[in-house]
Design a protein around this nucleic acid. Sequence first.
DNA 1: GTTGAGCGTT
Length: 303
Amino acid sequence: MSELYIRVAEDENEEPMEIPSEDDGTVLLSSVAAQFPGACGLRYRNPESQCMRGVRLLEGVLHAPENDWGNLVYVVNYPKDNKRKMEEIDAASAVKIKRGFQKTSDLIVLGLPWKTTEQDLKDYFTTFGEVIMVQVKRDAKTGNSKGFGFVRFTDYETQTKVIAQRHMIDGRWCDCKLPNSKVFWAGACPDEPMRSRKIFVGRCTEDMTTDELRQYFMQYGEVTDVFIPKPFRAFAFVTFADDQVAQALCGEDLIIKGVSVHISNAEPKHNNIHQLFPQFPGGSASLAAMFARSQYQFPSSHV
DNA sequence: GTTGAGCGTT
């Protein structure tokens, strides 16, 4: 029946320590904590299922599984494990709240004069509100402007105002719109796709290192892996310990080193247009894309 | 060295 001592260790592979039990066969949490300061419970590996199981804890008293501690080694639980989990959930819900709230997106700026620079763009758009990112898209070889760019504002009200009107920039009329990618993903990547722990980070620049990406994404939760393909391909994969964190970031545009990167689910091959719209049989991707656009032209978060 | 509707080197 009840043992005089049970074997407790910091870790399954650590040297166990014997902890005294009470006369009724229970073990006081305070007895465990006397040897393992900060302990908040015990767990053990169930020999049948090979899974870890928690030991019942009621008012500071640990109860033997099936009334017999047996000869198992019990592993100490510490509150820091739970705390870490909580931090990750908080980060995930913070992102979700931010998303449900009126969050700004990058806007495409169409019709820019060839000569317009990022500084020009910043100067112009700052008259509407605080600007957090501007880009002018250029030919990689020649450096010539492609005549369009992107802007992102701090406040959603600013964004709304900017979209609503035309803009005279350096002598040409320009339009600001939600980019197609944004419109598409807003509808096609809701909340419950694959629950992957891995995210795809698109539009990376060549100077972003794995360390920098790890440092950046740590704020959302524990990062278990960062992968940057070589040679440079302008994207990266980041894996989190918690799928909730990864999923919460999906669809976001984040700014890393002043560059707007786009987060989507890893493995986009399972997310292509034909899989999303099977009613358009093979070959008609452009038709399917038009359909997708017409469906998601005004996603609820932007009306 | 050109150009003027589009969509960000997945």
